[in-house]
Design a protein around this nucleic acid. Sequence first.
DNA 1: AATGAATGAGCATTCATTCAT
DNA 2: CATGAATGAATGCTCATTCAT
Lengths: 184, 184, 184, 184
Amino acid sequence: MVVEDKKKKILESALKLFNEKGIDNTPTTLISKEADVATGTLYIYFKTKVDLISELGTSIQEESLTSFLDLIESSVGYESLEKFWLERVEWGVNNPDKYKFMIQFKSSPYNINTEDKIPDHEKKLLNLIEEGIKNKILKDLPPKYISGFFSSHYIFTVEYIIQTKTKERKIFFETFFDGIKYTN
Amino acid sequence: MVVEDKKKKILESALKLFNEKGIDNTPTTLISKEADVATGTLYIYFKTKVDLISELGTSIQEESLTSFLDLIESSVGYESLEKFWLERVEWGVNNPDKYKFMIQFKSSPYNINTEDKIPDHEKKLLNLIEEGIKNKILKDLPPKYISGFFSSHYIFTVEYIIQTKTKERKIFFETFFDGIKYTN
Amino acid sequence: MVVEDKKKKILESALKLFNEKGIDNTPTTLISKEADVATGTLYIYFKTKVDLISELGTSIQEESLTSFLDLIESSVGYESLEKFWLERVEWGVNNPDKYKFMIQFKSSPYNINTEDKIPDHEKKLLNLIEEGIKNKILKDLPPKYISGFFSSHYIFTVEYIIQTKTKERKIFFETFFDGIKYTN
Amino acid sequence: MVVEDKKKKILESALKLFNEKGIDNTPTTLISKEADVATGTLYIYFKTKVDLISELGTSIQEESLTSFLDLIESSVGYESLEKFWLERVEWGVNNPDKYKFMIQFKSSPYNINTEDKIPDHEKKLLNLIEEGIKNKILKDLPPKYISGFFSSHYIFTVEYIIQTKTKERKIFFETFFDGIKYTN
DNA sequence: AATGAATGAGCATTCATTCAT
DNA sequence: CATGAATGAATGCTCATTCAT
């Protein structure tokens, strides 16, 4: 087995089991078994179970934000926001396991210190929003409210799409955008 | 101590501790201690820890829906929806502990059979939404999407208000309503 | 309810439940419930659960030995022994609950001090046996061995009769008597 | 410590404690302590306390029946039966702890499914008895009665020998055999 | 005597983590 | 690096017994 392959298998098994049984109902021994690895091996790659959870959560959150890089190149408008939104939604729909775990992770006590690791995106997004408000593209709402609204709307929409298997996308984005777009 | 007082204290202690430490990281012994009650007393009022969790979650969910009764009397429009939305938001803001637990509970595995107990509200809300769509007050979106959007937007907004302590309300409701209102 | 009636009901319920679930798997609360009596009432009539068990065991043992009174009037011989044996067997067959519990009780740790309460019968039986040996009616075996053999043979036989529902009796007694009768 | 040594020590400690305090009054923690092993170690070797009890009971029952193999080679008669009986008695007298536990185990609720594991001996013994009846060596009693009588007589006799430390054997076997031998 | 809510020590079992091999 | 037997603190739950009413 190639080096680091075991770590990968452990993370994959953890993801699967955490979704099936919940984080707190998944013993590390079971993760090891699922990963075809000895009990102790898990503790070579992760100091504690919490470390494993954190690393899994953080890495998935980062992956979910890949498309963000495109957004910060452009300025905020219907098209750029829609593109960003669509890419994230598509990622969620195509990675339901990772997505599902991300939700569980975010609302768990294990998320505590994770925000420190993804602060840049937040800041940059806030900057873009402020710019959008100044340019009268977005309503004059607190930027933090808009970014939060974005997240919550996105999370709910992905869940809805996964459940209903609908092919619709644009109308869902408009629900979001109509809520925050500038009107006089 | 008055009858049923102990049960109340147990529920209050559980609420507090579940929010502080998470449901799965709160031993029943700690709940008992916090409630100034013996270990076994908890099991007089609740058959199992899961029963305690369920009863707490269900009762809070019901409480949070009290204002719903007003809504179903009227028809869907800006005013009636806003009134409903405002009352629920106010409940959440004024009961942050209950609110916080409700969120944790809803996304937990302990929520499984609870929906059976609060299905009417969902159905009635869907009926109201369908009516709103027919009357060209709301966009022609899947009713389930609108009701889900309502929930997710409401949850996020309460969180935002609690964190920022802002006095704003109306602009937040408009964020929601502008997203779903009918336009030609 | 007549005085002492509750005590009787408690004993009856205990007998039933001890047989159904085993002594150690029968909570006193369940006995109370079965007897339609409050939890605390049991402890008015019995200082502890062990006391209840002992009293039940002892009283049943005594009852099972009622027929013994006839035996000690006569001297040991085929007829008198058979009569005694038959009466005890019949008692066991007709009181399977009491019989069953008696077996459980005898082989339990709760039996410890009970023998002190039924020593007379034992002694008198031993005297009768010694007499029987002297008179060349019984083999020259240790009297204690014969009395123990009597018990064990009796217990097994009752079990056999209850299980098979056979009407036979005499041939079973002969199995015992042929084992101990004097032959030259 | 050699592999499987811990399991052995756990079984030995359990045997000792079950006899001293009774199965239901022996906590698994005490067994572990007596075996100089951690609490959790017991659960590596036995899934539950019941499993430990069953394995202990079954293995001892099997050991007690070793001498049975000789018996089934021969046909039923005074000598062969006596040899079988003597060997079993000797095993009981020499292994009073195992013997004592076996009795407790047999009359306990934990014995339920154990008979499935030792059914052959019973069947073979019944066959031998039937043969003995046909050949007019044994009385015409129900074979099941004879085999049960054998057991109960054997159990009582071992108890008697252990208590009295007598060296006698033959006279006790005759008690049994005289009870069942054919006479015309 | 009767009640039954309350008590808290006790128990079976789990599981994150370690460490000798 | 890898293994997996071993550890023991921690947990959900039970139940004999008490005592205020």
